[in-house]
């Protein structure tokens, strides 16, 4: 049952991706990428990553879509027809894909509990979370306590990105509105 659910969601995900590649209207692309994010969130929850699924639903389908739509509002909603041939990019993608599929042959199958990844450090966190921190949600205890440095660095990344956006878009509005409307098409 878990496999079937997983398989259906994966196929939906692939179908939506093909849609994103094919559609030329950027508005449709943004809506499809929202659907893609919701599918990805459902898939992540099916894979027991409840925290990640929740974040993906809120971030990918919520905030990203709003940001993309507001960017579309400021730019153009129609993609220009392609000027170059798509043979080279397609060949590049297929080559990369072939190399990666070759790589997956040695990877453990989905859902296997005895893989190296699931044997050592993951188990360690699961065993030690309750005695050491008394926090039942292991994801929270690893995120905020064991790997607190990571999360601090990542909060700093978000802070930096916020400053970057402000520097790019906020600065000119304060100088005056004279040169605002002129150069925008």
């Amino acid at each position: 049952m878990e496999f079937l659910f997983n398989l259906i969601l994966l196929l939906f995900l692939a179908a939506v991706t093909i849609g994103i590649i094919g559609v030329r209207n950027l508005f449709a692309v943004v809506v499809l990428s929202g659907a893609y994010s919701f599918l990805m969130a459902t898939l992540l929850i099916a894979m027991d990553a409840v925290d990640v699924g929740m974040t993906e639903a809120a971030v990918g389908a919520g905030v990203s879509t709003v940001l993309l739509l507001s960017a579309l509002h400021l730019t153009n909603t129609e993609e220009a027809p392609a000027k170059h041939s798509n043979v080279l990019p397609m060949a590049l993608a297929l080559l990369t894909g072939a190399a990666l599929v070759y790589g997956t042959w040695d990877l453990p199958r989905y859902g296997d509990p005895d893989t190296p990844m699931n044997s050592y450090v993951g188990d360690e966190y699961l065993e030690r979370s309750i005695p050491e921190t008394t926090i039942p949600n292991v994801v929270t205890s690893v995120l905020a306590s064991y790997r607190g440095y990571d999360t601090l660095g990542e909060t700093a990344v978000i802070f930096t990105a916020g400053i970057g956006v402000l520097m790019l878009l906020y600065g000119r509005r304060r100088k005056g509105d004279d040169d605002e409307g002129g150069d925008r098409s």
Binding site: V52, V59, V63, S64, Y125, V138, V142, L143, D150, I158
Partner: peptide, 19 residues
């Protein structure tokens, strides 16, 4: 239980992704 470590790594990656 499923392995919690990749969840933590990806949780941070998502928020950095939107940034």
């Amino acid at each position: 239980y499923s392995n919690p470590l990749p969840h933590v790594l990806i949780l941070t990656a998502i928020v950095v992704g939107v940034a």
